[in-house]
């Protein structure tokens, strides 16, 4: 176990009956950094979170949180972590203030004692402290849930899809808050289905069917993209997609509005230029572009499915 890591996971597996929810998962999160776990529903994100927060036992492998063993030291871990589960964790019938006091009392502390920790976030919802949690908007609930997860001064914060179904404005604000928390030294593991949020993490990993396909710094994951990506603009996108897919096969040409993304090796450029010459009516403009993180994950998924 390395002392620089807030979270360390080694070869973790977990099955439920025949379903392998986690397959030999390993990852490490440095203290005071944000690690983003990106993956679709059913990939195993929540299972991993529940093992790390000591709610499930792994079948095999080991995990450490704040240097403590997830199975042997579970009681100590529970005092030191904050957990915001994917489904809304608040008591709908309690007010904003009551929810917060409740969570503080569970951890034998008071809101007053740790107010400085949650101040920036909580102040935004304090005007509504007498409103029942069930009557808050999505963004407000999210802020309250985060305040509740922070009120006992955790060292490590687990946020399971905190931004799902939340609009772009609230998501932006939420990520600004996470950065502040990180700067105060808290280690954060956050899961999300939004690819663009991967870019906001210090490190990110993509999980699918229980396996972590790759972890790394977002920019270096993009650097590792195999081959070239071309962006093609056209006046007739749907027709162009059809013609190109016939030539190049499935999962090579993707449409983004009026723009197409095409993956391939460097010789693809020669092919595309020839295609442009032979189809003047499509008004094609071809550009070699840098892939996005989503393109990288798609490539990882495809190569993983083939192997």
């Amino acid at each position: 176990m390395n002392g620089n890591f807030g979270i360390e996971v080694r070869g973790l597996s977990k099955s439920f009956g025949k379903t392998k929810a986690l397959k030999n998962v390993s990852l490490a999160v440095e203290k005071g950094s944000i690690f983003g776990l990106i993956g679709p529903d059913g990939a195993g994100k929540s299972t991993l979170f529940r093992i790390l927060t000591t709610l499930y036992l792994p079948d095999s492998g080991e995990a450490f949180v704040s240097g403590l063993h997830c199975v042997k030291n579970y009681k100590e871990i529970r005092k030191r972590v904050g957990y915001m589960p994917g489904r809304f964790s608040l008591y709908q019938d309690l007010t904003v203030e009551e929810n917060l006091s409740f969570y503080a009392s569970v951890f034998k502390t008071t809101v007053k004692e740790n107010y400085h920790l949650i101040k920036d976030i909580y102040q935004q919802i304090e005007p509504f402290k007498n409103r029942r949690a069930g009557n808050l908007s999505g963004g407000m609930k999210q802020k309250l849930a985060l305040s509740c997860a922070l009120v006992h001064k955790p060292e490590v914060l687990f946020l399971d899809e905190p931004t799902t179904g939340v609009d772009a404005v609230s998501r932006k604000e939420f990520w600004d808050m996470l950065k502040e928390l990180k700067n105060s030294g808290i280690t954060i593991l956050v899961s999300t289905p939004y690819m663009d949020e991967a870019m906001l993490c210090d490190r990110t990993g993509f999980i699918q069917n229980g396996a972590v396909l790759k972890t790394g710094i977002p920019e270096s994951i993009i650097d590792d993209f195999q081959g070239e990506m071309f962006s093609v603009t056209t006046s007739k996108p749907q027709e162009t997609v059809k013609l190109l897919s016939e030539e190049l096969g499935d999962n090579t040409v993707f449409r983004f509005g009026s723009e197409l993304h095409i993956y391939g090796n460097p010789s693809m450029e020669i092919f595309l230029k020839a295609f442009k010459e032979s189809h003047p009516g499509l008004n094609l403009e071809i550009q070699n572009t840098r892939p996005g993180i989503e393109d990288c994950f798609i490539q990882l998924m495809n190569s993983n499915n083939e192997s």
Binding site: P40, P193, Q208, N302
Partner: peptide
């Protein structure tokens, strides 16, 4: 909100 929670290939 038809595409919530799916992987990027499925979304495309």
């Amino acid at each position: 909100e038809p595409t919530g929670g799916v992987d990027p290939v499925t979304r495309r």
